[in-house]
Amino acid sequence: MKTFLYNVGYFHRETWRIVKSNLLSNLFSVLGTGLILFLFGMVATGTLIGNELLAKLQQEAEISAYFSETMDESVALLLVDEIKEIEGVWNARLVGEEESRSQMEDLLGEEAGILELFEENPFAAFIEIRIHLDSMDTVLNEVDNLNGIEYVRDNRAVLERLQGIIGGLKIIGTLIILAVGITTLIILSHMIRQGIYNNREQINTLRLLGAPGSFIGFPFVMVGLLLTLLGGALATILINVLINSGYSSIDGALTFIPLPSQQGLMMNISILIIAVSLVLGLLGSLFGLSSIGKNR
């Protein structure tokens, strides 16, 4: 530790010397790493937005329970209370006939005029039950078995499809993240090996003078970290520009999509990219350094 503290200036100079000794290759490495991390950032952004979307949709997972038209409202309200007690249900409320019609009008939008053709309100009152998606099967079963419930309708097919899409995206995301990690490690360890090769005579001399591996390798680790951090910074700038323009272009146009807050997303993605670049930089350098292992 003392040796490291005494040589901070030396390590700093060595790091820049190694970077400058192969400047063009190192610049391309920064660009390559930056673009790979940008790709990773895009996947991570998509995953974060997808997770937010799924969480919101899961919160809004609901089933509709229809009861006998002859049932008194007070009895229906008792039924609502009973449903609220079921595990997996986080809210239940009675939707009257008028509200039911109004919901349909909202859904139909400009086509709502078609409802004028009906002399009487064709929509029945029902119980709107908000549930946790994971408990859908048990809740459906229990609600269906309640006295007075005639029919239960769920939107499971839609939710399951959405879950499937997001699950697929997660798999693709994981594969891309793996590819990004491996590619960055290969680029970086190659650069470090190149640096070691270019400095092989100096390394050999230092070994013969008794320099420990950690002393010889430290500047190379610094180079690896510097290259990936610069790549990470580049990726962070690009991804923030992308998120900014993405949010600007959908601002107001797609208000029904539950997007996470822009500032929060940008902050999270930036931290993630920088953390990933640090880890990859360290690992890549250590892989590259494994070639300094001989005693001659």
Binding site: T3, Y6, N7, Y10, E201, Q202, T205, L206, A211, P212
Partner: peptide, 23 residues
């Protein structure tokens, strides 16, 4: 086995950097 690109002084310093000596 001197290190090219460094001065005579830096080469001599290089032999001592990992011996735990104060700068």
């Amino acid at each position: 086995k001197l290190i090219d690109g460094r001065t005579a002084f830096e080469n001599v310093m290089m032999g001592m950097r990992f011996l735990g000596m104060p700068p």
